[in-house]
Computed example of a mutant assay.
Amino acid sequence: MAAALGAGLLALPVSALAADRLTGDLKGSDGAAHGTVEVIDAPKGVILRITATGLAPGWHGVHFHEKGSCTPPTFKSAGGHVHAHDVAKPVHGLLNANADDAGDLPNIHVDPDGTATVELYSTLVSFKGEGGRPALIDQDGSSLVIHAKPDDYQTQPIGGSGDRVACAVLTP
C-alpha cells in the first residue's frame, strides 16, 4: 500500500505537491549568515522551519515581526510583533489569558554547538489574512526575529526575551 501511495504521489505535478512558502536568510547582528527560515501556509495557520547556526547556546524567544526589514545590528527596522491592525497596543504572552499578540511563538533551544533545527506551528497568523488572522504578506512584509533570551510568555512587551540577535526577512 505504501509503495502504491508513494507511486501515486510521484505521478502528481510538482505544483500539486508544493505549498505556498515564504523563505528568508537568517542574519546575525554582525550581518553574517546564520541559517534559513521557511514558513509554509497551512489551512488554519503556518508551519515555521528554522535552521540556525552561530547562535549562543540555550533558549531563545522567537517572534514574527511586522515589517520585512532586518537592518543589523539591532534589527529595530523589523518593527514590533505582527498583530491585528485594530489592536493599538498588543498584549504579549502565550501564557497570558488576555494575549492578542499574533507574533508570539514558542521558544527555540540552541544546542551547545550553536545550531538549532526547529519546526513550529502557529494558528495566530496567516499568509494573507485568512480566517481573520493577521497577514505575514502585506504592504511592508514581515520578518522573523530570534532574541537573546527566552520568552517567559507573560512579561510585556516581549516576554523578557531581550535583544534581537538574528533576523530573516520573509519573502515569497
Rank of each mutant, 00 (worst) to 15 (best):
A52R: 09
G160T: 02
L17E: 02
C167E: 06
L105P: 11
L26R: 05
R21A: 13
H60N: 12
K27F: 01
Q139R: 08
G35Y: 08
E66S: 10
G93Y: 12
G132E: 07
D20A: 14
K149E: 05
G93N: 14
A33F: 14
T74P: 01
L120K: 12
V125E: 07
L22S: 03
P13F: 10
A102Q: 06
S122E: 09
L55K: 03
V91M: 10
D113A: 08
P112E: 07
W59R: 14
V91S: 13
P43Y: 05
T53A: 11
Y153T: 08
P172G: 14
T36R: 15
D151E: 08
H83I: 02
V110C: 06
P106R: 02
H81G: 12
K67E: 12
Q154H: 08
K89C: 02
P72Y: 13
P150N: 07
G54V: 10
G45Q: 08
L12Q: 15
G8W: 01
N96T: 11
T51P: 00
D30P: 00
D140Q: 03
T36F: 09
N96P: 05
T115R: 15
T51C: 01
G58I: 07
V82Y: 11
T123D: 15
S69Y: 02
T51N: 14
A166Y: 04
W59S: 15
G68A: 11
V62E: 12
K67T: 13
N107V: 05
I50E: 00
G58P: 05
I137R: 11
L17A: 12
T74K: 13
Y153N: 15
D138G: 14
G160I: 01
G114C: 09
F75C: 06
L9K: 04
G54E: 11
L9Q: 09
T36K: 15
T155L: 04
G160M: 03
S77Q: 04
A18V: 10
G79Y: 09
G35W: 09
N98F: 01
A88L: 07
V37T: 13
T51M: 05
H63I: 13
T155F: 04
C70L: 08
P134M: 10
G54F: 11
H81Y: 00
D41V: 06
F127K: 03
P43N: 10
V118E: 10
A102N: 06
F127A: 01
G162L: 08
D138R: 12
L17C: 04
T155V: 02
D104E: 12
G129R: 11
L55D: 03
L10G: 07
A18F: 00
T36P: 03
R164Q: 07
L12W: 10
L94G: 14
A4M: 06
V39H: 13
G103A: 08
A166N: 10
L22D: 03
F64Y: 14
G31H: 07
G129L: 07
K149V: 00
V87K: 14
L22W: 05
